[in-house]
């Protein structure tokens, strides 16, 4: 593949922060990561809190200078000061959340302000802003102060703002966090629409189903390092020597979980309350997938169902992240 086919090339990227707490002078937020992103794809960066996802996004969007390593964005070295303003014209970021807007200004006024910062001529601004407001379905709320927007509306105006310069690369840092399922679905649909329009999208998320639904390729980060890389199948296959066991019990299997962890070296556990029952899922090395063993462990909690399941992205994620999960 030609270099020009890549939107992003990251080589050994590292970022440390000075911190003198607990006698530890430096915190390594991102530790020598390398990956490439093809033009036009949706690329996921997954990982628990503190994994280094946001720090990576900040470095790739010129908001943070890497400590070492190299990142080439659209053929321009991000560490070279001369490239920074050129790059900023070609990329944009959605950090999202409740912050990042002038609340006394309307949605339209917020967009006008940022359009000016991207030096978009006044003549073009009106149509551009109208089109963006239509895209994010905020035409009717355009002239309402953003302090009166719901969380979903704020997120949509964030996306409109990030599209103001028609960026070739769009960084979306947890775009659906805290949103209700319906709005999240709308945002995902919008992301797909933008990708179909040819934009390269870098998406960080906590949600496995979101990554599975949207991302062509992804990396999984933990403790600043990449612990998994590839498409969804690659990630699942990376733990192919594992099995996923699902047990439904009537009572909470507190000691069983501990027992599996210590005896079978189980990498993960998930316990959910479902219709008053407890569903326990864990990923174990394939040599331990003899179900009778688990029937013995869980018997005292009144087993309703037990079986081996296909490995999901979530299983793989939890297995790969392991102790890095907070």
């Amino acid at each position: 593949m030609d270099d020009s086919d890549y939107a992003i090339v990251v080589e050994n990227l590292t970022r440390t922060f000075s911190s003198h707490h607990n006698g530890n002078p430096k915190k390594v937020a991102v530790d020598g990561i390398s990956f490439t992103v093809k033009k036009g794809e949706i690329y996921g960066i997954l990982g628990p809190n503190g994994a280094g996802k946001t720090t990576t996004i900040k470095m790739l969007s010129t908001l943070l200078i890497p400590t070492s390593g190299k990142a080439t964005i659209l053929g321009l070295d991000v560490t070279d000061e001369k490239n920074v303003r050129t790059l900023r014209n070609r990329i944009n970021v959605v950090s999202g959340g409740e912050r990042g807007l002038y609340y006394r200004l309307s949605g339209r006024q917020n967009l006008e302000f940022f359009a000016d910062l991207y030096n978009i001529p006044k003549k073009k601004q009106k149509k551009l802003i109208d089109d963006l407001l239509e895209l994010v379905e905020l035409t009717d709320a355009a002239d309402i102060k953003t302090e009166n927007y719901s969380r979903g509306m704020k997120q949509r105006i964030h996306i409109a703002h990030a599209l103001i310069n028609d960026p070739e690369i769009l960084y979306l840092d947890e775009p659906t966090i805290g949103l209700d399922p319906e709005i999240s679905k709308e945002i995902r649909s919008l992301i797909r629409k933008l990708s179909d329009g040819g934009k390269t999208i870098i998406l960080t998320t906590h949600y496995m189903f979101e990554a599975e639904e949207l991302c062509n390729h992804m990396i999984i980060m933990s403790g600043g390092k990449i612990v998994g890389k590839g498409n969804v199948t690659d990630i699942k296959n990376s733990i192919s020597n594992s099995s996923s066991i699902r047990v439904v019990t009537e009572r909470e299997p507190v000691f069983a979980i501990e027992s599996i962890r210590t005896q079978m070296n189980a990498d993960s556990k998930v316990t959910k309350l479902l219709n008053g029952r407890f569903v326990t899922k864990f990923t174990i090395p394939i040599e331990y997938n003899d179900l009778s063993m688990y029937e013995n462990i869980f018997r005292q909690y009144n087993i309703k169902n037990i079986g081996v399941e296909e490995i999901t992205l979530e299983d793989a994620y939890l297995a790969l992240v392991g102790d890095g999960e907070e």
């Binding site: 010129t62 900023r88 014209n89 912050r99 990042g100 002038y102 910062l117 991207y118």
Partner: peptide
């Protein structure tokens, strides 16, 4: 307010704003 980061992310100098 969290608006400093988007400002900084734009190609405009903070001085001008």
């Amino acid at each position: 307010n969290g608006t400093f980061e988007p400002m900084l992310c734009s190609p405009t100098r903070i001085f001008d704003i």
